[in-house]
Structure formats: C-alpha cells, structure tokens
C-alpha cells in the first residue's frame, strides 16, 4: 500500500477545500470500499480526509413529510430507523440486502452511493481497465462479464454500479445534497450516477471536493407500499445479479402510480421510466406488468455471457410488481 496522509476534517468547508485542491486527497467515510481498493493498489490517494466526525449523522423529518438523511449516517442505522421502515420499506430492505452487519455498521450513506464497480478487471491493477486507467482497454467484453451490464453500457466500459441502496434511492427520486468548492447544490437521483460513455473513469457527476452531506427522501405516500428484491448467487453477503426496487399504488385494479428501478444491470441504478409510463393507468395484472417489463428491457444489449440477465430482470420485475399489487 502506498504511504498516505490522514487528517480529520474540522468542518465541511475545510474538508471540501482539502479535497478540492486536487492534489490526491480523498474523503474517507466508513472506508469499507476505499480501504480495500487502496490495498489492491486501485486507489492510491495521497491523503485521506476523514469526514465521519463532521458529516451530518442524523435522520430528520422535513416539512413536507420527507426525511433528510445525513451523509454520515451509518447504513445500519438508516435501515433500522422506524420512519424509514414505515415510509420507505424499499430503502430499508435494500440496505439490509447488502454486505454484512459489520460492514453496514461502518459504511456511511454518502460512501455507499460512491462505491466503485466490482468488475474483476477494475480490481486487478495488472490488467487493463478503462475505468481505472483511461484508454487502456476493456477486457471484460471478450472476457468475463457474467455479472456486468446489459443496458446503457459503452464500447469502453460494461461495469455495473454495485450499491443496493442507490437502486432504492433512484426509485424514490431522492435528492443528493452536495457541498462543493462552488458551494452547496442538489443533485436529483437517479442523476447522481452517469453512464460510462467514453469517460468510464467518472462514476458520478460529482467533481473533486464535492462532498455528499445529505440525502433527502421526498414525501411519497406510495412508497409505503414498496419493496426491494435482490437476486444473488448465494443467500447472503454477495452483490446483486439483478435487483428491483419498486413502489406501486393501485386503485380499483388500475395502477395509479409507480416507481421502479433496476440494479446490477447498468453503470447507474437504472430508473425504469419506460415501464413506469407504460403502467400508469394500466390494469394491475401480470400481463400488463410483463408488457411493461419487456418494453423497458427492449433496449437491453446483453453480451454473450450475460444474456440470462434479460429474462431474469423481466421475471423479477413482474414478480415484484405482482406481489406489490397482491399485497394486503
């Protein structure tokens, strides 16, 4: 591991300035992903600026009935919070579907959103990877891509975004509050993450020194009937193969409104806007759910080794929506 400096930020402003200077300093939250990447030589920061003492770590109700979740809130606390569980079960379920109890107790909300891809090539510094080393190439297209993207990928990158929590936040349309060198600003989800295009080294729209201070959950009554379902190779402690976050409001057998996002299919948590539009006003039946899922996945361009993800995502989407429609 390359030698590095460590400092505790005294204030948000000081942290933003320290990292915004662009001389190789990065924010340190729970460190559950960053420290691993440092050990692997994938991340080689000059200085870690620890923000865990200054990042807001509270969950507060907002005026309209939403929640403001501090960027320093630990994942475990978020999942366990009574208001989160009652108003946004999809979010609590998504967080609990990830990692292990120990990791969730360390990981922060801000850090969770900035997890880097688990693509094997990205994690191995002896191999090319456009995300790690722009221009070096992407061996995954010809090599192992069983669990990589089927939608929105580019010639230069087929990585997926690994956070479960981000999928729920994308479905809920959360707002990410950022403090940056230019002052505070708000980034709407799913707009935080970006498709790889020809700049796969950029996972998000954030720039140097941009610190996630909070995530705001909008008032969303239909989210009380929401669900996260994660398909994975083993029963626990593994990243999603495909996941679905969905909220559904049905009245008189008709879909009044819905929010849907897919995980582990793209470089971003994939908000299924096509499916949502197809469902609003449609009958809440398995046939309609299937039609909407197929419309959403019509744009999928799977690689030879991950074509199974298309029927898997379709089946999962139909099942989650059907279960939500049938739930008492």
């Amino acid at each position: 591991m390359r030698p590095f400096g460590y400092q505790r930020a005294a204030s948000t402003r000081a942290a933003v300035e320290a990292v915004g200077a662009g001389d190789g300093a990065v924010f340190l939250g729970g460190g559950t992903n960053l420290v691993d990447l440092m050990r692997l030589g994938v991340a080689t920061p000059h200085t870690l600026v620890d923000v865990t003492r200054i990042a807001p770590a509270t969950i507060e109700e907002t005026a309209g009935g939403g929640l403001l979740v501090g960027g320093g809130v630990r994942n475990g606390e978020l999942a366990a919070h009574p208001l989160v569980r009652r108003r946004y079960p999809v979010l609590s379920q998504a967080v609990l579907a990830g990692a292990s109890g120990q990791i969730r107790n360390m990981a922060t909300v801000g850090g969770n959103l900035l997890q880097r891809t688990r693509c094997s090539y990205f994690q191995d510094v002896t191999k090319p990877c456009n995300k790690r080393q722009p221009g070096s190439g992407c061996p995954a297209r010809e090599g192992d891509h069983r669990n990589l993207a089927i939608i929105g990928h580019s010639e230069s990158c087929v990585a997926t975004q690994p956070s479960d929590m981000a999928v729920a936040l994308a479905a809920l349309g959360a707002t990410v509050h950022v403090e940056g060198p230019g002052g505070p600003r708000a980034v709407p989800m799913p707009g935080l993450h970006r498709l790889p295009g020809d700049q796969p080294q950029r996972d998000t729209v954030l720039g140097p020194g941009d610190l996630i201070t909070a995530v705001e959950l909008p008032p969303l009554p239909l989210a009380a009937r929401s669900r996260y379902r994660k398909v994975r190779d083993r029963a626990s402690f593994s990243f999603a193969v495909v996941s679905v976050a969905a909220a559904l409001e049905v009245a008189g057998g008709v879909v009044r409104d819905c929010r849907i996002a897919l995980g582990a299919v793209a470089h971003v948590p994939w908000r299924a806007e096509t499916a949502e539009a197809a469902l609003r006003g449609a009958e809440a039946t398995e046939a309609e759910f299937t039609r909407a899922a197929e419309l959403e996945l019509a744009g999928a361009r799977p690689l030879p080794g991950n074509a199974y993800k298309v029927p898997l995502a379709r089946n999962l989407l139909v099942r989650v929506l059907t279960d939500l429609a049938e739930a008492p």
């Binding site: 688990r118 094997s120 090539y121 191995d124 061996p139 090599g143 190779d233 029963a235 402690f237 593994s238």
Partner: peptide
C-alpha cells in the same frame, strides 16, 4: 481468464463459498 491466463475471481467477494 483466457486473455491473461489467470483465475480472475481471486478473493472471497468474487469466489463464492457457502455462507
């Protein structure tokens, strides 16, 4: 990995054992 000739999933996050 045919291109590089090694075993790609070389850690316990990628090489899955029963939990």
């Amino acid at each position: 990995d045919r291109e590089f000739g090694d075993y790609l999933n070389h850690d316990l996050a990628q090489y899955h054992l029963a939990t």
